[in-house]
Amino acid sequence: MLTFVLSELAPGNFFDEMKLNPQISAETIAGLKARYALDQPLYVRYARWVESLAHGEMGFSFAYDTEAMPLIWSRAKNTLLLTITAMMIAWMLAILAGVWSATRVGRAGDRVCVATSSVLLSVPELVVALLLLVLAVKTRAFPVGGMVGLDHDTLGAGAKLRDLVWHLAIPAAVLVIGAFPILFRHVRASMMEVMQAPFIRAARSHGIHGRTLVFRQALPAAANPLISLFGMSLAGLLSGSLLVEVITGWPGLGPLVLEAIMGRDFYVVIGTVMLSTLFLVGGTLVADMALVAFDPRIRTDG
């Protein structure tokens, strides 16, 4: 856990290095330079940046001509919405499918699931996103682009929610399809291992069957490695969300950071990257803590 705290501190330092890149001065117009105090020596700029960071600000965005922080944060909320939704759906499906598969290892249902997951694994997210987009366009069932329709504000509360959900569907679906195979495999493997354990057989002989057996006894035992997986899957999902947002037009951090790069809007870039890292580290920390709370064995070693 200590290492994660360290990592949390580290990204700040990491990006120092990049700030020292002379690119920054070279690209800016002289007038803007003066306005944004870029003609100050490097260490002064950095000091001021750190200071403003401590105040919760993240510098200025050149392109939007506004403070970077609120800009990044509003987009970040959208990305979080997308990522967390996809995460929950993917994990739910993976657990259900994984457990179901593990109880019928080798039989038809299991084989189908494993084969499907293999196929899905081979298809890159880029392609999945494009395919689903085509589907959306052709069937006109799902709206493409944006988070809400143009007339969103005029709708009633219930309709607003439905509008949001429709728009959320495609990006979330892409992320889920991307994440599901790996999660499924791990759940299945973990469950299979647990099902072989002696204590399961003992429970069975005591008359505990079916769903109780699986969910009350086996699953908690299998959950240990999965919680560690949680952190990694979060990383993958965050990375994937960037691409998906860009392709499907979901207004999250993805399109923002892309624009910022094209427009040489450095503070925005740094801010975005740092924020996404923070999310990731935060999520893994949560997973770590959950693991400690969940499995008493770990506490004594810590």
Partner: peptide
């Protein structure tokens, strides 16, 4: 420590960040 740092960052963002600082 360095590997943990690298692995803590989502790779696309890292990729883009590095790319961003280059011409």
């Amino acid at each position: 420590r360095v590997t943990e740092l690298f692995m803590a960052l989502p790779w696309i963002y890292l990729l883009l960040a590095i790319r961003a600082f280059l011409p």
